[in-house]
């Protein structure tokens, strides 16, 4: 099996985001592999262990994004493809076209995994657009996955605890959610080995992509509005409960 895993290099979830200018942010914070992509890499490795084949880690990102490919390789991915971009934000339509182009030129995917969304742009659409570009079906927010009789079988939550079991024809694109597996921590020996693995380099600007029909442009980033000083309520548990209920009813009007 040839399994491609599409990754994004993103600011660590615990990092403070400091806004710079209208729509920029201080990029000197620690960056990591998008957390949901770890489930994608792990799942690809599990399948290749059973079925044989190779796992190829692909990313569109700045030069530093190579460390996310190295991390995937330290987890066990066999090789990597890095499409260099000059910005953290690349439109999903452009990203999906770039991924399609390099994957198409590289091999024949039996499966493509990715995280259900990036935790920075939270766009949740690149994988759907990639699937359409490659004429494959896509499923997202997958929490269990297996291959049975030549088809993919996946489960996803559809709200309120309700779950859907889906059967998908192969090849397909799968967006991984938390709970799909327990991503491994790379061992030191694997980290050392990963440094010798091959990363093919491309430049986004040199791929000759057509201008997409639609786009979204980030105009402004702002801090989420913070709340004013909290009103502290004291007293015995009963007194606190009584005052809280009164305030929620009369001041906040949410009860």
């Amino acid at each position: 099996m040839q399994i491609y895993v599409c990754l994004k290099h993103v600011p660590d979830t615990v990092a403070m985001i400091n806004i710079v200018g209208d729509a920029g942010f201080d990029e000197s914070v620690k960056f990591v592999m998008n957390p949901y992509d770890e489930y994608a890499v792990e799942e690809a490795l599990k399948i290749v262990k059973q079925e044989g084949g190779e796992v190829i880690a692909v990313t569109v990102g700045k030069e530093a994004a190579a460390s996310t490919i190295r991390y995937a390789m330290a987890m066990g991915a066999h090789r990597g493809i890095h499409i260099q971009a000059d910005a953290q934000w690349v439109d999903s339509m452009v990203t999906s076209q770039a991924l399609k182009k390099v994957i198409h030129a590289d091999g024949t995917p039996d499966l493509i995994f990715t995280g259900k969304q990036s935790v920075d742009g939270e766009g949740m659409q690149t994988h759907y657009r990639l699937a359409a570009a490659l004429d494959m079906p896509a499923v997202n927010e997958v929490t269990t996955f297996s291959i049975q009789e030549g088809k993919a079988v996946a489960e996803r939550e559809v709200g309120g605890g309700e779950r859907e079991m889906l059967e998908i024809s192969l090849p397909c694109v799968v967006g991984a959610s938390k709970g799909l597996n327990e991503p491994r921590y790379p061992k030191m020996t694997e980290i050392i080995k990963s440094k010798k693995k091959k990363i093919d380099q491309f430049n986004l600007a040199d791929l000759g992509l057509e201008t997409p029909a639609a786009s979204s442009e980030l105009l402004k980033l702002e801090e989420m509005p913070e709340r004013g000083q909290a009103k502290m309520i004291g007293g015995s548990p009963k007194e606190m409960a009584e005052e809280l209920v009164q305030r929620l009813r009369e001041d906040a009007k949410v009860l």
Partner: peptide, 21 residues
């Protein structure tokens, strides 16, 4: 064609301009 949504998992608020129909 302007939307407001969260970025960075709710740490910031982003204003996006959507083009296309």
């Amino acid at each position: 064609g302007i939307v407001t949504k969260s970025h960075f998992s709710g740490k910031t608020l982003a204003t996006l301009k959507l083009s296309g129909t």
